[in-house]
Design a protein around this nucleic acid. Structure first.
Length: 764
DNA sequence: AATTAGGCATTTTTT
DNA sequence: ATGCCTAATT
């Protein structure tokens, strides 16, 4: 056995690597060398003759994590690393269903519906079941269905539980939805897990194939698995009992996606003989950063305390930076980054800016562009979710399976070919009454139109004409797919459908065409597969690929990323922006009134902070853009949980602080009656910070705008509002600096009451 | 059928 | 502010 395999491990890591018999739970704090332990454990299993590489399976959360794991395993054991099954839970299950799904009636060439497809399908089901989408949002119904599936309950067991009216409705849609998926040869994300589980339970012999094949099963990010995933993992290790799970309850941030933190507890009950190992030495962060993060997470009630420590140096102070609004926040981040970059100690790829919601990236992107800083953005509008990409993908799906109604409905009139809503709903009706797919319905209508067998009187001959053309189009596209590469099939689609001309009308035509080019390029790795096979493989690939997987290690660009996506990554320098109440913790978790949701926000904050190796910057803004307008904010409660000895607060000049005080008071009364406590803390912190600060005159954009005191209004003033246009002040309520103005606007906007400080009014 | 205007909800995070 | 959907208009 190679000596260096075990030489650089601490005693806990060593134990984790060498405990290879029986169930193991590894609680791995951030930066504790988790990946190293997993890969070395695999290498050790092989090295010590415990099993062959092909008898080991390790599942991760993202493809990126899987790829990285494979890479590091290759470093340890060379080519044989490729014999280890390393993949995400979803693609692992997908390949099982591809092979054995037939046993439970799953089409071998099933497509995987993404979120968008699911919503479309749900809407269609609701339509058919006569359920008003205004009364019940398709989103919430889908989420109920997804919930149910994640807990291993199919529509039958869902319906069998007597419940409230909403569940009644969900049950009806659920049943129809399942039929639709089946008829379309499709499964959704949750099905990949649920059906795999059902397959194993119905067909023990298939379960046994995998139970025998995998002597060792490892699950990474165990805190983020759902009930279905855990059940599958348990099933697979029924025989071997060699289930090793690695996770950190403090980094559980996906409960909204049905991840169930109780899996960790279940594991301990299900496997009472399990060895439990805690990895507590942090190799990643400076002492200051680790201590700060520890102080934040320590406030959670529902947790077991850990004893994290590090031998790293103390490091610099954590910078808390206050800014006026999100634009200045972004600019101050970029300024700092330019300073860092000039120092030459770091490259741009060492730097990440993290935020709670994707929308926050916009201000950052703009600042990057303005200052010529290259950036890499993860997420946002996801590549495979862009309209042009989804359109062409839907064509591919229809080519490979014309019975996929959801995909067909998407492209039947894109580009427009005179098949309107009316015509498609007639087709839909024909399809339902005859229990056939929409495509079959179209074919029959066209073929038999002269016989009048299937032609509903409502369908004009013109409509039939258009439909005939559509059927011909599809058959042209389907022809010869076995002889051509995927890229040429895509080309054929773009040309024959007139998609290019259709795009030309779009204002982002160039960008969209580029996207299609990129899409085409991405097909090349499937070139050696023929026709249908290639399409199926390609479609599966794009369904299971996430944006973070494409995150490259580009040397010349910073990374913009959400806190969720940042899990598992690390950067020498981390900026967290939007450290405000309502942003982090997110308003939804505050308003839900559910303390566990706030605890999850805290964990999210913890995850973000512990991504940083050397320097951590926490930015907040006094005002935050919200639905067009801009609203005052309170500092995040998490900021006040960091000991001030670890931080250096950089505030704004006095003008802004005063501004903020009055804003804060009003805001506190108005919007956050339940937050007295954190408000007090934040106020203390703020007065502390403003005392420390020298009064400095900075000339910036904000100082140029008149202060509120100068904005006195009287009746008859003419004003201009950015959206309502010109108007006249007709009454003023309340005295003092911030009255409520009643303004009569021109045109149809009429009379509005506006708070002087909030409305972006210009005096004329 | 296609285009346009106006009304409405929306925004967490993603395999 | 933006985007999606519906209703009204061409």
């Amino acid at each position: 056995m190679s000596k260096n395999l075990l030489s650089d491990l601490n005693s806990q890591q060593l134990q984790a690597v060498q405990t290879v018999n029986g169930p193991v739970l590894i609680v791995a704090g951030p930066g504790s060398g988790k990946t190293r332990v997993i890969t070395k454990r695999i290498a050790f299993l092989v090295d010590s003759g415990n099993c062959a590489p092909s008898e080991i399976a390790a599942v991760t959360f993202t493809n990126k994590a899987a790829k990285e794991m494979l890479g590091r395993l290759e470093d340890l054991m060379g080519y044989s690393a490729n014999l280890v099954t390393i993949s995400t839970f979803h693609s692992f299950c997908s390949s099982i269903l591809r092979r054995y799904g037939g046993h439970i009636g799953i089409n071998q060439n099933f497509v995987i519906y993404d979120d968008d497809d699911q919503i479309r399908a749900i809407k269609k089901c609701m339509e058919e079941a006569n359920i008003d989408p205004k009364k019940f949002s398709p989103r919430s119904i889908l989420s109920a269905i997804s919930n149910s599936k994640s807990e291993l309950r199919d529509h039958e067991s869902f319906s069998s539980i007597k419940s409230n009216y909403f569940d009644e409705i969900v049950g009806r849609v659920f049943e129809r939805y399942e039929e639709m998926l089946f008829a379309n040869g499709a499964v959704d994300f949750d099905d990949l897990l649920l059906k795999t589980y059902l397959l194993f339970n119905k067909n023990q012999e298939i379960a046994q194939i995998y139970q025998h094949r995998f002597k060792h099963f490892m699950v990474d990010e165990f805190q983020d698995t759902n009930v279905a995933q855990y059940a599958i993992a348990k099933k697979l290790s029924d025989l071997s009992r060699n289930l090793c799970v690695v996770g950190d309850p403090d980094q559980s941030i996906y409960s909204w996606r049905n991840a169930d933190i109780r899996n960790i507890l279940s594991f301990q009950t299900d496997f009472p003989e399990a060895t439990i190992i805690a990895l507590e030495e942090n190799y990643r962060s400076t002492q200051n950063i680790l201590t700060a993060a520890q102080n934040v997470i320590a406030k959670n009630k529902e947790r077991v305390d850990k004893n994290l420590w590090t031998n790293n140096k103390k490091g610099g102070l954590i910078t808390i930076k206050e800014n006026y609004n999100e634009d200045e926040e972004a600019q101050s981040v970029i300024n700092e980054i330019m300073k860092i970059s000039e120092s030459k100690n770091y490259s741009l790829s060492d730097i990440a800016v993290m935020y709670r919601v994707n929308a926050q990236s916009r201000a950052l992107e703009m600042s990057c562009q303005k200052n010529g800083i290259a950036y890499q953005i993860v997420g946002g509008v996801k590549f495979y979710q862009r309209k042009e990409i989804k359109d062409i993908t839907s064509y591919l799906r229809v080519i490979s399976n014309p019975n996929d109604d959801v995909s067909l409905a998407r492209i039947i009139n894109v580009p427009t070919r005179s098949i309107g809503k009316r015509t498609s709903s007639e087709i839909s009706k024909v399809a339902i009454t005859n229990n056939i797919s929409m495509f079959e319905a179209i074919e029959r209508v066209c073929k038999d139109s002269h016989l009048n067998d299937f032609l509903p009187s409502q369908l004009s001959s013109r409509a039939v004409n258009s439909l005939t053309k559509f059927v011909n189009l599809i058959s042209i596209l389907r022809k010869d797919i076995d002889q051509e590469t995927l890229a040429s099939t895509v080309d054929k689609i773009i040309i024959n459908t007139g998609y290019k001309e259709y795009l030309a009308k779009d204002e982002n035509a160039d960008e969209r065409l580029e996207n299609l080019q990129e899409y085409k390029n991405s097909t090349s790795e499937f070139d050696d597969l023929s026709g249908l096979e290639g399409i199926t493989a390609f479609l599966e690939n794009i369904s299971l690929v996430s944006d973070i997987d494409g995150l490259a290690d580009l040397d010349q660009s910073i990374t913009l990323i959400t806190l969720h996506q940042a899990k598992g990554l690390e950067f020498p320098i981390v900026f967290m922006v939007g450290m405000e109440e309502g942003m982090l913790p997110h308003i939804r978790s505050i308003e839900s009134g559910d303390p566990t949701e706030l605890e999850e926000e805290r964990r999210l904050c913890y995850v973000g902070m512990t991504r940083a190796k050397e320097n951590l910057f926490l930015h907040r803004a006094f005002r935050r853009g919200f639905r067009g307008g801009s609203e005052p904010t309170l500092p995040s409660r998490f900021l006040s949980d960091i000991p001030t000895t670890l931080t250096n607060t950089v505030g704004l000049n006095q003008v802004h602080s005063t501004n903020q005080d009055s804003i804060t008071k009003r805001n506190n009364k108005k919007k956050h009656p339940g937050l007295q406590n954190s408000y007090d803390q934040s106020k203390n912190q703020q007065s502390r910070s403003s005392k420390k600060l020298p009064r400095r005159k900075t000339i910036n954009k904000i100082d140029l705008t008149p202060s509120k005191e100068e904005w006195t209004y009287s009746i008859g003033n003419k004003v201009k509002h950015p959206t309502f246009g010109d108007g006249i002040v007709i009454s003023i309520e309340g005295s003092g600096p911030d009255p409520v103005l009643t303004i009569a606007f021109k045109n149809k906007h009429g009379i509005k009451k506006l708070l002087a400080s909030m409305a972006k009014l210009k005096k004329l």
